[in-house]
């Protein structure tokens, strides 16, 4: 069955668990992310977020439970999953000493795009980011905001079903940040699922739904407004602090 034309959720996890020896890093998490949703995956340092994401990306075999990503099973089809997801982190995405065009080419290449496809994508991408004049510039010469937009676009080059974003807007000025979120919304509007992890609760406010992990378990799940109401809090920051301090 084709994921795109089906009603399969983008991510479906059932009692997903990962143990390292005696230590349970991820403790039976169950959640679902709909197609085209912007999903915030929050948690304190060491709460098990990274382990959970690695399992969802097909990089780590779960101990028990089940999960599908873009319709593929994390136990049996990790390679299929990798082909259908994109990844962007503020820190490590682009090669600073390659030009804008070379970066696009490289990432197109590793996802097996044909030369024609890469050429076409490069054109579309540069047009959309208004980066035509900078196509031959080294990435390190670009302002931080542009780098982030470029990194995000590059993570979408192979039309993935889901993109994982790690603290996508850390350190940029607020105008650029709001523009960046506009891009994310646009992408989600086009049917791509966005999975965001961040330490910054004001980034969390932008998500459709949020999950908060504490000690390997998901302790809260819902839209930001719902969580704020439920915990009688003004901001996601307060929601987070209340939940983490409770446990």
């Amino acid at each position: 069955m084709n994921y795109n034309s089906s009603s399969i959720p983008a991510i479906q996890a059932e009692s997903l668990t990962k143990e390292f020896g005696d230590f349970t890093a991820v403790d039976a998490i169950t959640f679902q992310v709909e197609k085209g949703e912007i999903f915030g995956f929050l948690g304190a340092n060491g709460a098990g977020k990274t382990t959970a994401i690695r399992m969802l990306c097909g990089l780590l075999q779960p101990t028990s439970g089940s999960a599908t990503v873009a319709g593929f099973d994390v136990f049996t089809q990790p390679e299929e999953i990798k082909k259908n997801i994109g990844y962007m982190s503020q820190r490590f995405s682009l090669y600073e000493d390659l030009t804008v065009k070379e970066n696009i080419r490289f990432y197109g290449g590793i996802y097996g795009l044909s030369n024609e496809a890469i050429k076409e994508k490069t054109g579309i991408l540069l047009e959309r980011l208004k980066l035509h004049n900078e196509a031959g510039s080294l990435v390190k010469r670009l302002p931080l905001g542009w780098k982030q937009k470029l990194a995000f676009s590059v993570s979408l080059i192979h039309d993935p079903a889901i993109v994982f974003l790690d603290e996508p807007t850390g350190g940029v000025d607020p105008v650029t940040r709001r523009q960046f979120w506009e891009m994310i919304y646009e992408t989600a509007y086009g049917g791509v699922t966005i999975f965001v992890t961040t330490h910054y609760m004001d980034e969390a406010e932008y998500c459709h739904r949020i999950s908060i992990m504490v000690n390997g378990k998901i302790v809260a799940l819902g839209p930001p407004s719902g969580l704020k109401n439920k915990l009688n809090a003004d901001s996601m920051n307060q929601v987070f602090l209340k939940l983490v301090r409770q446990s």
């Binding site: 509007y189 998500c207 930001p224 407004s225």
Partner: peptide
Amino acid sequence: DIYRLLKDLQDFQQTDSCSLFGN
């Protein structure tokens, strides 16, 4: 539909500034 709403607000003639802020 926040994204469509944003696009429409950007097209509104009397809009001075508009940008996403959280949801």
